[in-house]
């Protein structure tokens, strides 16, 4: 099967970073109360991860590998991500204020979203080329967004139901996420 198609299906459904691999759980639980915030967060994350995948790949193969600095990978990558988030925030503020207003509040939170770092590291571990790495970043982020939107929709609906008091908040969100994860398990072995 085409590597790009299998990547898309893989990161959306089969190896979804949130539902099948436990990455990015904090923002997944934290910003899934409302659909609109979830959408904003998803867009911001997609933007940053795609860009970060591209840049960290270049750093790995043009800086770390040639100079034998592989052990600095974590420090280098997280620094790139932190700087990138800052740059994106400032650039958006100058270039497109409306987009900045839509995504701005979520940007600082992305630094500590472990999907970003996990994708950057896994791109190198899996040995993708530059285009594949960027595409895999984009697909992983879309997978994150899908999970986030699904949970947000369900939680908005649960708000209206008469859940007992001790279920409201985090227990409800966690058990909902667990039941969602069951429905993702059927895709095992698809790619």
């Amino acid at each position: 099967m085409n590597v790009y198609l299998s990547m898309l299906i893989g990161f959306l459904l089969v190896n979804n970073y949130v539902m099948c691999q436990f990455f990015g759980i904090c923002p997944f639980l934290g910003v899934s109360k409302k659909f609109d915030t979830a959408l904003g967060m998803g867009m911001a994350v997609t933007f940053v991860i795609t860009l970060a995948s591209f840049i960290t790949w270049l750093i790995q193969y043009y800086l770390l590998t040639p100079f034998n600095l592989g052990y600095l990978q974590t420090i280098a990558f997280i620094l790139v991500i932190a700087v990138l988030v800052q740059v994106v925030e400032n650039a958006l503020k100058k270039l497109s204020f409306s987009l900045y207003q839509a995504l701005g509040v979520y940007l600082p939170l992305i630094t500590t979203n472990c999907v970003v770092l996990a994708v950057a590291i896994n791109n190198i571990t899996d040995g993708w080329n530059l285009l594949e790495a960027t595409f895999s970043g984009c697909c992983s982020a879309l997978g994150f967004t899908l999970a986030l939107l699904l949970l947000a929709c369900i939680r908005e609906r649960l708000e209206l139901s008469n859940m007992p008091k001790w279920m409201q908040g985090s227990p409800g969100a966690l058990i909902t996420a667990g039941l969602m994860a069951i429905s993702f398990m059927g895709f095992g072995g698809l790619i």
Binding site: C153, I154, L179, S183, G186, F187, G189, L190
Partner: peptide, 28 residues
Amino acid sequence: VIRAFANYPEGCSFAILFMNVMTPLIDR
């Protein structure tokens, strides 16, 4: 898709469950 390509021989319950999860989004 599950029957033809995935690990499990039968995908009926997982297909319905996944669409159950999608339902609030579809409704929206």
